[in-house]
């Protein structure tokens, strides 16, 4: 059964379609069985640019609300515009990237559209005509498969769980959607500003495809640069265990774990981290885990895919040089 899918376009900082939105397109193309069943939605001052990005990966039909007020208005307004697009395009499924935007969008959109809702989705499949999706729960310690009853669903996808779509340019077919009249209460909040957060110089922890984290095994804050240099060579984000942030070596924005950030990169490298459960739940859903630790009995080796038991003070610099060598970085 072919399904109509509406993909919500979220702009990245540069005004282009975000990586998470492109992953949603990738998922939609697979699920819908081709570009014909997929439409996009874009809003705000960069809506036209987003429509062009949709067209570049084969999505011609894009519902557009070119309304600059939506750039900094609460999501409620955006969702009302999406509701109009839904009424016109009549999708079965709305897909959105699993960003903070996407996750907030999901609840509102599903409530308005009387649809099923889920976030953190890693797989969407057809099963006997029904729509099924999988998602990790309990901090990645279990997986749930759910089936949609009643057809409609809004799903936010887990970052990095779906492939980016191939380039397949088509001519864009924009459908302008006016911004509906909104209850004033929904537009009352206003954004006063945005400050960038220090998560190191590399990519942000939450959406990096490689994360290198340091723990207590580094012994002192002045050794943390070993982790940062390895991360830089890999183009990775830098994380830390709670021992490190509690000790004040790095701010809490670096913390990976139950009380910090949960990450699910393609590759997670744990340097000098023993693997307390509170840390493990924050990184267990990483695709490949590498542990470097001098204590062979450290629990981190139970969850890691590859382990190096030895002196991190020797291994990490050697690894940094080797990575630089194979990547051709001077």
């Amino acid at each position: 059964m072919s399904r109509r899918i509406l993909v919500i376009g979220e702009p990245s900082a540069g005004g282009h379609l975000s990586g998470a939105s492109l992953e949603a397109v990738g998922a939609a193309l697979r699920l819908g069985g081709g570009a014909a069943s997929v439409a996009g939605f874009a809003a705000g001052s960069t809506a036209a640019a987003l429509a062009a990005d949709f067209a570049r990966v084969g999505v011609a039909e894009v519902y557009l609300t070119e309304e600059p007020r939506l750039d900094s208005a609460p999501l409620a307004g955006f969702v009302r515009a999406v509701a109009t697009a839904i009424a016109e395009s009549k999708p079965d499924v709305v897909l959105v990237g699993g960003t903070t935007f996407g996750r907030d969008f999901t609840g509102r959109c599903a409530a308005l559209w009387n649809a099923a809702a889920a976030t953190g989705v890693t797989e969407v499949t057809e099963s006997d005509g029904g729509l099924r999706f999988r998602r990790p729960v309990f901090g990645g310690r279990a997986t749930e498969t759910r089936e949609v009853e009643g057809g409609r669903a809004v799903l936010a996808l887990r970052p990095h769980a779906f492939p980016l779509p191939a380039e397949a340019p088509v001519a864009s077919k924009p459908h302008p959607i006016p911004l509906p009249e909104l209850p004033p209460v929904l537009l009352a909040p206003h954004r006063a500003g945005v400050e960038a957060v220090t998560t190191g110089s590399g990519p942000a922890l939450g959406d990096a495809s490689i994360v290198v984290s340091g723990g207590r095994g580094l012994r002192a804050p002045e050794h943390f640069h070993l982790v940062e240099e390895l991360a830089a060579s890999l183009g990775a984000a830098v994380g830390a265990s709670r021992a490190v942030t509690d000790a004040g070596w790095r701010p809490t924005s670096f913390q990976v774990g139950q009380t910090g950030r949960a990450v699910s990169p393609q590759l997670y490298v744990a340097v000098g981290i023993s693997g307390a459960i509170q840390h493990i739940v924050g990184m267990i859903s990483s695709r490949v885990i590498v542990a470097i630790n001098s204590d062979a009995s450290a629990p981190i080796f139970k969850v890691a895919d590859y382990g190096l038991v030895g002196d991190l003070f020797q291994i990490v610099p050697a690894l940094t040089s080797e990575v630089k060598r194979v990547r051709g970085i001077a």
């Binding site: 609840g107 509102r108 929904l186």
Partner: peptide, 25 residues
Amino acid sequence: QAGDDEEGVVAAALGELLEVPDFGF
């Protein structure tokens, strides 16, 4: 979000149902 299902959907859905602005994170 709840620590078990980790949906993070309820707050936003409540916002819509109560017709009140909502913010997560």
